[in-house]
């Protein structure tokens, strides 16, 4: 017996470790709904670095776009090019400011249409893997952000806060496979649930008898307890009514371009966890 144990000790202990990890994961899934100390600490430590790195990358991108590409010009044009660069840089900065202005104005107009209090925030990091869809924003519990709060932009729904620390929060995007939003089609009022599937959403549980049209807007129904009613989620992309079955299969294109997410609004309100 002892001999057998000595021979297989490494394998058995390895299996034990793996099982323990799986058990802990399973327990965490069922019990953990709030950010724990370890998660808050990691968010707290990584977020400032992420914020600094994001600013640095944007700075380098500006320099690269406006100066370095033009360094190897002929000598006699150097002064002219430098002046040109300064002007281009200035123009680019103004254009960037103007674009930001447009975005912020749209966000502001949208903000004014909301009955609940809102908090503007900047996206400072994305999900570290290719499989999940989350982002980190630069507002946290100190600013009044709580887990479960909805996050939106003028174009529509972005997602909901799933973790937060004092000055940063993580947002689960509606395109993540773990996301489900109670939804309805704006025209026909057909109800269902929009689940994330990467770049598109799957509109589940819509009865086969419902007559829907490609391009129709899909909005939040307000039934899930997270998102207020009437926020745009996306537009119907494809409809597969199939031969039989209770439901039809519908793909929805999100109205928000998640690859260009920069500023968002957190809808501050009482959340039921």
């Amino acid at each position: 017996m002892w001999e057998w144990w000595r021979k297989n000790r490494a394998v058995l202990l390895g299996l034990f470790l793996l099982l323990a990890a799986l058990l802990w994961y399973s327990v965490s899934l069922r019990q953990q709904r709030e950010t724990n100390l370890f998660e808050a600490l990691v968010l707290r430590v990584t977020a400032p670095a992420q914020s600094v790195l994001t600013s640095a990358i944007n700075g380098v991108a500006d320099v690269w776009g406006n100066y370095i590409n033009l360094v190897d010009t002929v000598e006699e044009n150097r002064l002219l090019m430098e002046a040109n660069n300064v002007l281009k840089s200035e123009l680019n900065r103004l254009r960037e400011n103007s674009l930001e202005n447009v975005r912020l104005r749209r966000l502001l107009e949208f903000k004014e249409t909301q009955s609940v209090q809102t908090l503007p925030a900047r996206v400072i990091a994305e999900d570290a893997t290719s499989w999940f869809r989350t982002v980190v924003i630069d507002k946290g519990s100190a600013d009044g952000v709580l887990e479960g709060m909805p996050v939106v932009v003028a174009e529509g729904v972005v997602g909901r806060v799933i973790r937060n620390s004092q000055h940063e929060s993580r947002v689960l995007l509606v395109t993540d496979a773990a996301s489900a939003v109670a939804s309805l089609v704006q025209e026909s009022r057909a109800r269902g649930i929009c689940r994330g599937q990467g770049s598109v959403l799957i509109f589940d549980f819509v009865l086969r008898k419902e007559k829907l049209v490609v391009g129709e807007p899909v909005i939040t129904s307000g039934m899930g307890g997270v998102f207020p009613k009437g926020l745009l989620i996306g537009h119907i992309k494809t409809i597969d009514r199939m031969e039989f079955g209770l439901f039809q299969t519908i793909e929805v294109t999100p109205s928000v371009d998640f690859s260009r997410l920069e500023e968002v609004l957190v809808l501050l309100r009482q959340v039921e966890l």
């Binding site: 390895g14 793996l18 990890a21 802990w24 994961y25 899934l29 999900d127 993580r170």
Partner: peptide, 28 residues
């Protein structure tokens, strides 16, 4: 793995389990 879960996905313990499984497989 646990630290990675804070910046990736929405399931605490998932990467802890997955990365530990890979590590033990390599050790084996």
């Amino acid at each position: 793995g646990w630290a990675f879960d804070v910046v990736a996905g929405s399931f605490p313990g998932l990467h802890g389990f997955v990365l530990l499984g890979i590590f033990l497989a390599v050790r084996a």
